[in-house]
Write a protein that binds this DNA or RNA. Sequence first.
DNA 1: AAAATTATGAGATGTGCGTATCGTAAAGAT
DNA 2: ATCTTTACGATACGCACATCTCATAATTTT
Lengths: 212, 212
Amino acid sequence: MDVSRQQSEPSPERGPRARTRKLMLETATRLMQSGFTPSVSEVAEAAEVSRATAYRYFPSQAALVHAVVDEALGPILDWRSDAPDALTRIADLLATAMPRIDEFEATFKAALKLSLDQWAQRQAGTLGNEPQFMRGHRVELLRQATAPLEGKVSKESREQLAQALSLVFGLEVLIVLKDIWGLSAERAQSVAEWAAAALVEAAVREAQTAAP
Amino acid sequence: MDVSRQQSEPSPERGPRARTRKLMLETATRLMQSGFTPSVSEVAEAAEVSRATAYRYFPSQAALVHAVVDEALGPILDWRSDAPDALTRIADLLATAMPRIDEFEATFKAALKLSLDQWAQRQAGTLGNEPQFMRGHRVELLRQATAPLEGKVSKESREQLAQALSLVFGLEVLIVLKDIWGLSAERAQSVAEWAAAALVEAAVREAQTAAP
DNA sequence: AAAATTATGAGATGTGCGTATCGTAAAGAT
DNA sequence: ATCTTTACGATACGCACATCTCATAATTTT
């Protein structure tokens, strides 16, 4: 029996396979958006398929979360901006991404948890070359957002700025500001926007004083 | 059998109980500092006590991690600074805390993982009033660090600054900059320090332009 | 030193997740 | 319409973590 075909082939758009997979994904997404991170068994029950079938499509909770994350990430990865200044781009990026992350908070937290698991297992030496969580989309998005600064600040400064900006943009921001400080999602985003603006302005100002 | 005495009483400094507990804690700390997050059974084996005994002292991996986190947190919670300016205090705080967090990276990541578990369970309604992880020491430390700004900037600005600073100070910084950007711990701290300084200066500058 | 208390160890038991096997039903091909 | 392929469900199994029980060893008390 050629097991390898089942998942490796880019799963046909039609037929029972696609139908069941879609059913499970929608069920999982719905459950996760309600703030709960289900096991494969629980999705199976909610979708009214047998456990065995569920495990055929998603061999682990990790695979399940991975798939839902891809759904949730869609609009964020499609983000583009041709605004002429970096400040506007950053604000726009945050306005696009942060509400989406908040909407899928449970999903992203589950993904973070899994990435921490993977990290721990790498430390222990139990290393399977599994698909990575935390794939660093932030890097590309922030390079895109800080592109208007090319020429205005040095390459090194731009890189450092992008790195600093990645600290005020993402799930971690919501964790810290909502769970520790008790802020609302809106207030958290506002703080993040203020911080992001401050960082951009600092980078620009430094470049100006260095070479006036 | 009066079970309640065992853990609730502030565990005597002497006797076999204190000895075994100390042995386990030291073993667990050593294992975790080597980058691995052991289960209770694994600590039991490493400490050469039986699983049953281990579970008497630490009824779960969570309890174990909690105890080691308290150890790791010690020097950070003791941090004080009477430097006259906020900039110096922040830099000093980062210089104290970040290397310590990096040293106990596995421990703090395990704690973060557990706090994510707790969050998920609260969402699901399975709510035991267990001891909280993520107890928000950052809030107090950063209020302390930004104290010199009292009078210079508004209370609201100071609060917002402290919130923004909490984004560039903590485990999350290391996760993002090391694991996603691939930076070294030293470089990560340097980026964090730059960002922190930028945020403080932005807050001060805003206050000056508002009321010159 | 003897008795009471407390700590420890060994093994059985339960639970949740993931895997494997097998028989049956549905879909597609000739 | 028959045959082949593919999908599905039920069940049993292994594993790892955590819990429970009870007998034994160590410590403390009198």
